[in-house]
């Protein structure tokens, strides 16, 4: 968050009395923030705590935030009742493939739209933008029918392929390549590189910030996605984490330590990725909150 202006209060043009009121106001602000912050953290803490609780302790009154005798039982049992390792691998394979393929195809198409002049370029771009307006629920029923006709239900390719073309990604890369300084390409062209080599040697590296931002957003969207996998991944061997979690809850309604252990497993990786790459995400959301 660079460039945030200094709060007015820090400037020296204020009398001491006003400064005191300002200080009081700021402290009140921090108190409110603290309370709201706790409201954000508490559900996570509570789930974590429940996931380390033994089944016999779940329903005790008063409930404890810090388990008296913490145990990994719930995690062990999750791995027994659903193919957890398989489900995690599915989630990783699907999310990574979708992310990488989305970045590559979007970067290529964005470059094509930005750096070539051809008939119909404007129409093509508008077509991409137009698809952004249609909610994904419209395509889901026909896609589901298509996949079931192909016999691709319960397959990972059915989870990956429809998610690769990203109009939003193309839009981002196009905007970025439009600003690329001509000299970069010209230097490559003098060295005799054609468009293809220039793209990989010069343009794609230049667009790394967009790739990072869009990549994180794409990864999170894919990792968390539920609706499409709900249609496609019906048998446990092809499930991703959110669907596996929903089915775990469906079967073990009252074993909340199991369900919370599953939730922790689903949530922790994205929170870590997010904490590590916070900056890119904020920037990305600003670029395109539309496409969450």
């Amino acid at each position: 968050m660079a460039g945030s202006p200094l709060p007015v209060a820090d400037r020296p043009l204020v009398s001491p009395r006003t400064r005191a009121t300002v200080r009081v106001r700021r402290s009140v602000g921090w108190v409110i923030l603290g309370v709201l912050g706790l409201t954000m953290i508490f559900p996570f803490a509570w789930s974590l705590s429940t996931s380390f609780q033994g089944t016999d302790r779940l329903l005790q009154v008063p409930p404890q935030l810090i388990p008296e005798s913490p145990t990994l039982d719930a995690y062990r049992r999750v791995a027994e009742v659903i193919p957890l390792v398989r489900i995690v691998i599915n989630s990783i394979v699907v999310s990574v493939s979708v992310t990488v393929l989305q970045i590559v195809t979007s970067a290529l198409a964005g470059y094509g739209l930005a750096r070539f002049k051809f008939k119909g370029r404007q129409v093509l771009f508008l077509l991409y933008l137009g698809t952004l307006m249609v909610p994904s629920q419209v395509t889901i029923v026909p896609l589901f029918i298509g996949m079931s006709q192909l016999g691709w239900l319960n397959s990972l390719q059915a989870l990956i392929l429809p998610m690769i073309a990203s109009a939003f990604g193309v839009f981002l890369f196009r905007q970025y390549f439009l600003q690329m300084p001509d000299e970069m390409e010209e230097a490559a062209a003098i060295d005799g590189a054609g468009p293809w080599r220039t793209f990989w040697k010069v343009a794609f590296p230049y667009a790394r910030p967009v790739a990072a931002t869009h990549g994180i957003l794409a990864f999170m969207a894919s990792w968390n996605s539920f609706l499409w996998p709900l249609f496609i991944a019906r048998d446990e061997q092809s499930m991703t984490l959110p669907v596996g979690l929903a089915s775990l809850h469906g079967r073990y309604q009252t074993d909340w330590n199991l369900v919370m252990a599953g939730s922790v497993i689903a949530v922790v990786p994205v929170i870590l990725v997010f904490a590590a790459m916070q900056r890119h995400i904020a920037a990305g959301l600003l670029l395109g909150g539309v496409n969450r």
Binding site: I41, P242, V243, A266, V270, F274, Q278
Partner: peptide, 27 residues
């Protein structure tokens, strides 16, 4: 900012289950 963003990046399914447990009427 990180704290307020944790729910945003978490899967809806996981978040909804967390709340379903917390909102359980008896326990």
């Amino acid at each position: 900012r990180v704290v307020f963003f944790m729910p945003v990046v978490s899967a809806w399914v996981a978040v909804a289950l967390m709340w379903r447990w917390m909102l359980n009427s008896r326990f």
